[in-house]
Structure formats: structure tokens, C-alpha cells
Amino acid sequence: MGRSPSPGESAGAKVSDINSARPAGRRLWTNRLASAAMLGAVLLAMIPVGLILSYIFAKGMAAMSWEFLSEPTPFSFRRAEGGFLNGLIGTGIMVGLATLVSVPLGILAAIYLQEYGRGLLANLIRFFSDVMTGVPSVFVGLFVYTAFVLPFGFGAVMGAAALAIIMLPIVVRTTEEMLKLVPLELQHGSFALGASKFQTIIRVVLPSALPGITTGVLLAVARAAGETAPLILTALGSLTITTKLIGEPISALPLLIFDGARNPFAAGQERAWAGALELLALVLIFTLLARIVASRSKISS
């Protein structure tokens, strides 16, 4: 690509005719300025990366303790004790439920798009899954609120429903991309052995695409674990540990961090930093896993 040295840089030419064709004056300076601007943009973007990671790590570690990881939140923000165990459990329950629902449905939908769907309906589904990835997550929360919370009350299932709706289009689209990469010859090999379409998909297509699908699922999980806005409207939040799935508000790590960021007391803010470290670590672990799975699959194929 653009690696070859530009004419302006290929100094050392002996023939004076060639040298006289070197870009000079304005052209040369414009080129240098542009290169500097590109590098400047990169350096500028590195500032927030460095600041976010260093602050979360420093402030998070300062407030991190075994107590933080193993205790629920105290009822007063002023009190410097307790932790976010209630949020961790809530996040685990809701993200887990959402994954259980959205992954099979998303994979089936992707199979429809890739293996069965032809024509208008498939194109509509494809287009609106794309569009759905751009629906504001707070609106998804409003929807679940109007459709399910109003009749049934706040709870883990409601939060999970919102997260599942957010994950679904991500799973659909990444899975479809991965299914596309499975060579048609493999399918034909299976069909020629007398396999049905069902058997071919389950035994040949899905296993071949599994690493890619896993990557997509892990990224969707990371995204869901960090969502706050939809949970305000569906899980509501709670200071006590609950494992009830329905009929009782439940907490989540992002909800507790949001509360900490909004409150004026140092103890609450410190817990929020530790919570941010905990959440970021969770999200980055899933993101990293996704990368590892993705690069592994590239090597083997």
C-alpha cells in the first residue's frame, strides 16, 4: 500500500534532472504537514486511552479490597464499607439470561439468513438487524418498561430481556458473516454423503464457523455487561443481594457505578472507582478472549 517512499523522500538521486523534479516548496510542505497531522491525531487519541486506563487502575486499586468484592452495598453512601457484590451477582444473572436467550435465537436467525432466506424477507431482516444495532439502548429499556415492567414489575428477567434485545442483532450479524466464510464445497461434501440440510448445518457448517461465532458472542456479552441505561428502566437497582428472577428490583455493576458517580460523598465515589475497575476488567477479559478465539481460528484455517 502506501509503504513505498514518496518521491519527496527518495533523496540521493545523482542525476540532476531527476532531482529537479523533486516536489519543492508548497507541495513538499503540504505533504509534511499532512503527515504531522496524521501522527498528531494518533497521539491525541492516545491521551484518553492512557488517562482512562491509568486512572481507573490507580483509583480502582486504591479502593479495591476483598470486602468490596464480597459484600453488598451499604444503605448509606457516606459509609466507607461494603462493596458491589449485589451488582456483580445481578450483572451475572442478567447477562447470563440474556446470553441464553439471544445466542440461540441469533444463531438460528443467522442460519435463516445464510442458508434458507431468499428475497425480500431475508433482506428486510438483514437490513433491520443492522438498523437494530443502532437503536439507542435507552429506548430498548423504555420498550421493555412499557411492555413488561408495567404489567409485571421490575426484575432480573426484565433487565435480561432488554440486554437480550441489544445482543440479538449483534449475534445475528456476526454469525451470518462467519457462516458466509464456510466454504460451499464443505456443504456439498456433506450433502453428497446423503446428509440432510439440517444435518449439514448442525454437523458441518456450525462447527466450522464456531470460533467466529464464539468471538461474536463474547463481544456481545462484553457490550451487554457494560450497559447501564436500559437497566435503569428495567432492573431499577437494589442495595441488597437478590437472586429472584422476577418481581423484585435487582442491581448491576453499571447501575452502582452510575449511582456512585452521581453522589457527592467520597465513600460512594471510591466504591464507584473500584466498581469501574471490576467492570472494565470483566469487559476486557471478554474482549481479549474474543480476540484470542478469533486469531486462533485464523491460524487453523
Partner: peptide
């Protein structure tokens, strides 16, 4: 049964 032009063993 059928055998194809390019070998296509399953992974």
C-alpha cells in the same frame, strides 16, 4: 456418492 474436483475434507 460423489467426489469433487478439489478435495473437500471436513475440518
Amino acid at each position: 456418492g460423489m467426489v469433487f474436483q478439489r478435495p473437500n475434507p471436513f475440518p
